[in-house]
Simulated scan of single mutants.
Amino acid sequence: MRALLVVNPAATTTSARTREVLTHALASDLKLEVAQTQYRGHARDLAQQATEGGETDLVVALGGDGTVNEVVNGLLANGPDPDSHPRLAVVPGGSTNVFARALGLPNDVVEATGALLDALRDGSERTIGLGLAAGTPGSEDEGVPERWFTFCAGFGFDAGVVGRVEQQRERGKRSTHALYVRQVVRQFLGEANRRRGVLTLERPGGKEGATETVENLALAIICNTAPWSYLGNRPIYPSPDASFDTALDLFALSKLSPSAVARYATQLLTSTPQRGPHGKHALSLHDLTNFTLHSQVPLPFQMDGDHLGLRTSVTFTGVRRALRVIV
Rank of each mutant, 00 (worst) to 15 (best):
R203A: 01
T213K: 01
V325L: 06
R126Q: 15
G279R: 03
M303E: 13
L310I: 10
T312W: 03
S95C: 15
V91I: 15
S259R: 05
F291N: 01
H281T: 06
P238W: 01
A35Y: 02
N8M: 03
I128R: 05
V21I: 12
A77V: 06
L58A: 05
D57Q: 15
D249H: 04
A159M: 05
S254A: 05
D83R: 11
E215H: 07
S84N: 14
E52A: 09
L120N: 08
D158I: 05
G205Q: 00
R320P: 12
Y237E: 01
L117R: 07
V198C: 09
E215P: 01
E202C: 06
N216W: 01
L130N: 09
R126P: 11
F149D: 07
E191I: 00
G138W: 11
G53W: 04
R126W: 09
L253K: 11
G66D: 06
A322R: 13
D108K: 07
P300G: 10
S175R: 14
V110I: 14
G63L: 09
R19F: 04
L103Q: 12
V161D: 06
G190Y: 11
S95Q: 14
F316S: 10
T113G: 07
D245T: 12
E55R: 14
R182K: 04
A61Q: 09
A192W: 00
P258M: 02
V7L: 14
Y39R: 08
A226F: 00
H24P: 05
L250A: 06
T289C: 09
S254H: 01
L46Y: 12
L217G: 00
F244C: 07
R2M: 11
A265Y: 07
F157M: 15
E202W: 07
V59G: 13
I221M: 07
R324G: 12
S284R: 08
T317C: 11
T150I: 13
A210K: 10
S95P: 14
A47D: 09
A220L: 07
I326D: 14
H294Q: 14
N193H: 10
L283T: 06
R203G: 00
N233G: 09
A210R: 12
D158T: 06
R186I: 00
G209D: 02
A89Q: 13
V7E: 03
N78E: 15
L105M: 11
R101A: 07
L58T: 08
L253D: 04
G172S: 04
N78L: 13
N69W: 02
T292A: 14
P204W: 02
E146L: 12
A27S: 06
T13Q: 09
P273N: 09
A262P: 01
